[in-house]
């Protein structure tokens, strides 16, 4: 009985996602059409990419509140360049340079100056927002249609944002699950002190996590620009919360050491987006949106908590003494 419950809870977010799709599919004909599902993929891609980057930071028990501001700053620079006559590839390259650079600043603040991640990234959030406002002069920058083509292009019938998202998630998954770097991240998240004792260069590892997160923020900014074709002063506002929510929904722990880029981040982002899209499709009362969305997030987190409790209980029973040894082994690897 408990085994069945565990299996069900292990796939709770997938089941919840399927439930949301089926419910709205029943209420709004056409919600499950290929075109509609394609929209869902395109619209959840930026959040999924952002959540993938956030997963790396959360894995080392950190947090990056500046991702939305980094998106805005990088997009503002790209917009300014485009309006100043630079080519689109150059503007995109500048964005992709700025993201990791901002991540490096965050990483150094956390690892070298020992500022708490929450405070350090809150500071860079305000710096980034201020910089973006300064560059845009608080005015919308309408970019050439070439940016919109980036968002609406397809490769073999698959939307380009979906392909970029898939590539990021695949790379993130390989990095996290199949490399020593990923295992060391997990170990550092469990206990930075133990990881350091096991010979891991914790400073470099944590800085790398922030750099990856910054890169993902810049990439998410490109994906959003591809959909909007414009940079506004509020570009990427509150995106950090969407990214954290999607990562946590996907099974990443806020306390470090546990998480998955795939399918976790994608599922989390797609679940939130599916609820919002479904509510539009059925022309729901606008006051219901926050209620329904937060209820779904709450149920997902509740199920995940139950799963953790059951799994922890099972682990204690099955591996009472070998748990610590297993951890040490993973850290050393």
């Amino acid at each position: 009985m408990k085994r069945t419950a565990l299996i069900l809870l292990d796939h709770a977010v997938i089941l919840l996602f399927a439930g949301v799709l089926l419910t709205f599919g029943f209420l709004a004909p056409g919600f499950l059409s290929w075109a509609s599902l394609g929209n869902l993929l395109i619209q959840s891609s930026p959040t999924a990419v952002l959540a993938a980057g956030m997963t790396f930071v959360l894995m080392v028990a950190g947090v990056d509140l500046s991702v939305g501001a980094v998106m805005a700053l990088a997009a503002a620079v790209a917009g300014k360049m485009m309006l100043g006559g630079f080519s689109m590839p150059l503007a995109l390259a500048a964005m992709l340079f700025m993201g990791p650079a901002c991540g490096l600043v965050n990483g150094l603040l956390v690892t070298r100056l020992h500022i708490a991640a929450f405070i350090a990234t809150l500071g860079t959030l305000w710096l980034g927002r201020g910089g973006a406002l300064w560059i845009t002069e608080t005015r919308a920058m309408n970019l050439p249609d070439s940016f919109l083509h980036l968002g609406s292009s397809r490769l073999l019938g698959i939307p380009l944002p979906g392909i970029i998202c898939a590539a990021v998630l695949a790379a993130g998954n390989v990095l996290l699950e199949q490399t020593p770097f990923g295992r060391q991240l997990r170990a550092t998240g469990h206990s930075a002190v133990a990881a350091a004792k096991a010979g891991i260069n914790v400073r470099r590892l944590v800085t790398a996590a922030y750099v990856i997160c910054g890169f993902c923020a810049a990439l998410a900014g490109i994906l959003v620009l591809g959909q909007l074709g414009a940079v506004s002063p509020k570009f990427g506002l509150n995106k950090e919360f969407a990214a954290i929510a999607a990562a946590v929904l996907g099974g990443t722990s806020l306390f470090g050491g546990r998480g998955a880029v795939f399918p976790g981040s994608l599922l989390g982002a797609a679940l939130i987006q599916a609820v919002e899209n479904g509510l539009v499709a059925i022309n729901a009362n606008p006051y219901l949106y926050p209620v329904v969305t937060s209820a779904v997030i709450f149920v997902a987190v509740l199920l995940d908590t139950l799963r953790q409790r059951l799994r922890a209980a099972a682990t204690r029973r099955i591996f009472p003494e070998t748990e610590a040894k297993a951890f040490s082994a993973s850290a050393a690897a």
Partner: peptide, 19 residues
């Protein structure tokens, strides 16, 4: 409902035009 958010607005209009 956009919450004064451009991304939510864009997604909302795309979905409305789809439906």
């Amino acid at each position: 409902p956009t919450e004064w958010n451009q991304e939510k607005a864009q997604a909302g209009v795309v979905n409305a035009l789809q439906a």
